[in-house]
Each structure stands twice: as C-alpha cells, then as structure tokens.
C-alpha cells in the first residue's frame, strides 16, 4: 500500500515539474500592453531605427534614418499589427565602390504578429519586400536590382521598449529574409513606443 502511495506521489511530482516546463516553453501568443493593461482598439507605434544594417553577402546597406509606422492591436488576446510606412533616408553601403541608387519598402502594409519563444516575446513582420538598386562602375552589384523579401522576427525587450532583429532572432522565430536566392542578414534595433493614444505610457508585450 505504502509503495503504491509513493508511486502515485512520484507521478504527481513529475506532473508538477512537467506542468512548469509546459508553462514556460509553450509558444504563447502575447498581447500589446500599455502600463500593463492590454491594448483595446488600436495604437500607432512610430519610430526610427537606432541602428539597421542589411547585408547582402559582402555588401552592407545602412540607412541613416530608417523610420517606421506600425499600427498595433490585439485580436482575441493576441498582438497583431501592420507596418504601414517605412520611409528611408540617406542609404549607403560599406563599399566605397557602391552607392544606393534607389531603395524603397514595397508591398506595404506588412502584417505583424506577436509570439513567444522560450519565454521571450517576439514580433514577426511578414511580407517584407525591399528592392535595392545599386550603382557604381566598380561595384560588383552596380546596375543590379536586388530585392529583399521574406519575414523577420525580432525579440522585444520590455525594459528598453525596443525590438532587436538579428540572425539569432530570425532563427529563433523560424523567419528569414532572402536575396539572391539565399538568406541574408538584417541587424536592427527599433524602439517600440506609442505615438497616438498611449503616448508616454510604458509599452510592453506579454
């Protein structure tokens, strides 16, 4: 009888441990929150990238001002949104031989959604399309139109109210940006602060 009781006890203990594991690793769908309260209706997040580098192998493109307008909302408790505007300014490359003749975010709006991977909240931007036309007689991509497409997942830091995009966050979210038929790198740090109704309020995701 006693042996039976211990066996049941062991099972319950294992159950508790597994419950805790499930609770922390499950792919939860987080919501947008202001001052800890779930957003009702929609809000506009407007900002400028603190840093953003797009690297087609060997050639990094940087825009001095990478602005964005993101409309966010919660649907059935899950954070969703749309990137509606991405004006870019003063874009250059890391090669003295290559200049950017034209670059523009296309196929807007880009849909976005929140997700959680191993307790970290992420924002996923889908449907990204950015054609870049490089220029330069001595530039290996001079005269060539390269189009960056795909989706990108960035980790959200509630403390700094920023979203970070890099190869680690893209891998974690199973997303990728592609050009020339292969994955490319995108490193960026984007503030996630409200512009409209909840201006000056702490924006978090959970």
């Amino acid at each position: 009888m006693r042996r039976k009781q211990t066996a049941i006890g062991a099972a319950l203990a294992a159950l508790a441990v597994l419950c805790a594991m499930f609770a922390t690793s499950a792919s939860a769908a987080p919501a947008w929150k202001f001052e800890g309260k779930s957003l009702e209706g929609s809000e506009v997040v407007l900002g400028g990238a603190i840093d953003s580098l797009l690297t087609v192998p060997g050639l990094t493109t940087k825009c001095e001002n990478f602005l964005y307008k993101l409309t966010v909302k919660n649907e059935a408790g899950t954070g969703k949104g749309e990137v509606t505007e991405v004006p870019l300014y003063n874009c250059t490359t890391n090669s003295s031989a290559c200049t950017v003749q034209s670059i523009k975010a296309e196929a807007l709006p880009w849909a976005s959604k929140l997700t959680t991977v191993s307790t970290t909240p992420y924002i996923i931007i889908e449907g990204v399309k950015v054609p870049i036309l490089y220029e330069g007689e001595e530039c290996v991509l001079g005269g060539i139109l390269v189009t960056v497409t795909g989706s990108a997942g960035g980790s959200i830091n509630n403390t700094t109210e920023t979203a970070t995009f890099n190869s680690t966050t893209l891998t974690a979210t199973g997303t990728s940006l592609k050009a020339l038929g292969q994955k490319i790198e995108w490193n960026g740090l984007f503030p996630t602060e409200a512009f409209q109704w909840h201006r000056e309020q702490a924006l978090s995701v959970s």
Binding site: A26, A29, F34, G77, T78, T116, N158, A202, S206
Partner: peptide, 26 residues
C-alpha cells in the same frame, strides 16, 4: 499551456510573470 489565442493578458500567467521579471514599468 497557452495555445495561442487563449493567451491574453489576463490568462497567460506564465509569460506575464516572466516578462514582469524583465522589468516593465507598468
């Protein structure tokens, strides 16, 4: 286990707790 749609701010206690420890100013 939050299965996506259920995980709103009120019910998703697991992720909420984790993020609270990350230091939101809410």
């Amino acid at each position: 286990g939050s299965s996506g749609e259920e995980a709103n701010g009120a019910s998703s206690t697991s992720s909420k707790d984790t993020l609270a420890s990350a230091g939101t100013e809410a």
